[in-house]
């Protein structure tokens, strides 16, 4: 589904990301771990064509990301708060995204109803604009909005951060369900090794912009990762 070739990103002579070759298969649940500054967000921003690669390319479903825009209809993401429109209420925001992705109000309502327990009664009909929500609640809105319109590629940057334990568990359930859907490729980055191991089939570790580990998840993965990071 996603093919990365000789990708690099350099800022003022400092290479922050350098991936020679990486292939993410369709339907894979892909976890990305690494310390601060390892290049996780840079990689995701490149995947969404928000920044330009210094060299190399990424293709999604055979479409080169930085030359065509045809990957947009089947790709959805939530990286940070700049994906939210502060002056809208959550409902308005969901419908706005829905309309952009060719979904009618009923489709969006059905999706929202499905994730009602994820919202925990704190999002919908709460008479608050997105800008006034807490960080955790903003994140809930962004994550669910990324699911609107049945995207085939879903990119979530640090989805577990700022969430309360209950919501983290619910989010893991949602991601696992998506991972079980063969059409959906899901990419998740996290600092939390245990969460990542639980939801991903494959885990790639970045260090200073380079891939240092690429493992299929098994019973030993968590131990292996913990050993790697415990320096």
């Amino acid at each position: 589904m996603i093919q990365v070739t000789n990708l690099s990103k350099t800022y003022n002579g400092v290479t922050v990301l350098n991936i020679e070759n990486l292939e993410i298969k369709k339907g894979e649940s892909f976890g990305l771990v690494g310390n601060n500054g390892a290049g996780k967000t840079t990689f995701f921003s490149l995947l969404l064509d928000l920044i330009q690669p210094s060299s190399g390319k990424i293709s999604s479903n055979g479409i080169q990301i930085n030359t065509s825009e045809d990957w947009k209809p089947f790709t959805a993401a939530f990286l940070d708060e700049s994906f939210l429109i502060g002056y809208l209420t959550p409902e308005e925001y969901f419908y706005f995204i829905g309309e952009l992705r060719g979904q009618n109000k009923a489709d969006v309502d059905a999706l929202l109803a499905k994730h009602e327990d994820f919202f925990n009664g704190e999002i919908l009909k709460n008479k608050k604009y997105l800008r006034d929500l807490s960080k955790g609640n903003m994140k809930k809105v962004g994550i669910i909005a990324a699911l609107i319109g049945n995207p085939e590629v879903i990119i979530l940057d640090e989805p577990f951060a700022n969430l309360d334990p209950t919501t983290q568990i619910r989010l893991k359930k949602i991601i696992k369900e998506l991972a079980d859907t063969p059409e959906v490729t899901i990419l998740v980055s996290s600092h939390d090794l245990q969460h990542t191991v639980e939801v991903s089939d494959r885990i790639v570790t970045l260090e200073k912009g380079k891939i240092v580990k690429d493992i299929q998840t098994s019973g030993e993965t968590l131990k292996e990762l913990e050993a790697f990071f415990a320096i």
Partner: peptide, 12 residues
């Protein structure tokens, strides 16, 4: 501007 990355990653 505050949500430009969103607009840029949507099919607009």
């Amino acid at each position: 501007s505050s949500y430009y990355p969103l607009l840029m990653s949507q099919n607009i």
